[in-house]
Computed example of a mutant assay.
Amino acid sequence: MNYGFETLAIHAGQEPDPRTGAVVTPIYATSTYAQDEVGSPRLGYEYSRSANPTRAALQECLAALEGGQVGLAFASGLAAEDALLRTVCRPGDHVVIPDDAYGGTYRLFAKVLHRWGLEWTAARISDPDAVRAAVRPGQTKVVWVETPTNPLLGIADIAALASIAHEAGALLAVDNTFASPYLQQPLAHGADVVVHSTTKYLGGHSDVIGGALIAADRGLGEELTYHQNAMGGVPGPFDAWLTLRGVKTLGVRMDRHCDNAERVVDYLSTHRAVAEVRYPGLPDHPGHETAAKQMRRFGGMISFRAAGGEAHAVEICNRAKLFVLAESLGGVESLIEHPGRMTHASAAGSALEVPADLVRLSVGIETADDLLADLEQALG
């Protein structure tokens, strides 16, 4: 039976416990498992780095939500990224990344994997021609995409970039963290792998760190599964349980995030202290038509440029009270940050440096009028 998204979020991989009837997936807080005889583990469980029932439930649910063949959970989003890249790339290979990629992703490529021998080129992923020009036939193994991007909210045409990547014999990997699988399912548009920081919207409560990979192809999924075990960057059972609990309410939370973000965008768009608002739902956003084609709605993330420059942007962040000054995003509470000095500080001085007057908002699910009042006093 083809179930709807919200039904899958609550039930996929989460059947009642066959022994006790427990409706909620138990936390299997164990490192090892008794075997009936040498080489015959029960249900395939022998050691929790290799497999754990709580993590297995989360992985099955994530695969169902993204429409993939294999889902894998990791200790963080960056652990997931590293496992993917070390699985499909070798020293001397090349990857195309966004020219406004998340700062942690940039750091992984520029400061860690570059020393391992992986080459990379930053390209404007909203422009398929720019991505095509950045691809090196025979050397490029992955086209890495965020859509929307962090923090400039750029939009990539997933289907177009999948075609470009596949023509070159490369994989298309899509970081779907900003959208969540509720708003966008990249595999349905031709992507090969979806990446998540499950810390964000999937967990949704700012209480757990995690990451995930979902593969469209079972063969690739099996390779990733091998490396998940061999590299060992897995979440503990309690972290998997917290993420699975958050996933159950993803649909209703995302609707409220979107509702509140639309109110905030309307307010910021006419405020004298705001020079520019970046949000894919705005008709004048350069990626609006593409976002409307491949997203259910436009998300809870907003960036804007302060009319008074960097000093004013920092002042706005410091003045906010209900919007908590903090890194991360996607939780039920609203957050505000200055990317240039916080989440994207690692990109300072590089081609990926973000505007100094940029402010990023993660709009939560509080009462919208209260959020607008806080922005009014913060903007001054």
Rank of each mutant, 00 (worst) to 15 (best):
R297C: 08
G299A: 03
G299E: 03
G299I: 04
G300F: 06
S303N: 07
F304P: 05
F304L: 09
A307V: 07
A307L: 06
G308T: 12
G308N: 08
G308A: 11
E310H: 14
H312G: 04
H312L: 06
H312C: 09
A313E: 05
V314R: 15
V314G: 07
I316K: 11
C317P: 07
C317W: 06
N318L: 13
A320L: 07
A320W: 04
F323K: 11
V324A: 11
L325A: 10
A326N: 12
E327T: 15
S328L: 12
L329Y: 15
L329C: 04
L329H: 13
L329E: 09
G330Q: 01
G330Y: 01
G331Q: 02
V332L: 12
E333I: 03
L335H: 02
I336F: 03
I336A: 03
E337F: 10
H338P: 07
H338F: 01
P339R: 07
P339G: 06
R341V: 11
R341L: 13
M342A: 14
H344P: 02
A345V: 15
S346W: 07
S346C: 09
A348G: 06
A348H: 13
A348K: 15
A348L: 13
G349R: 11
G349M: 06
G349T: 11
S350G: 09
S350W: 12
E353M: 08
V354A: 05
P355N: 07
P355I: 01
A356I: 03
D357T: 01
L358P: 00
R360T: 12
R360F: 14
L361M: 04
L361A: 04
G364Q: 04
I365M: 12
I365L: 05
E366S: 14
E366T: 12
E366N: 14
T367H: 14
T367R: 15
A368H: 07
D370R: 15
L372I: 15
L372V: 08
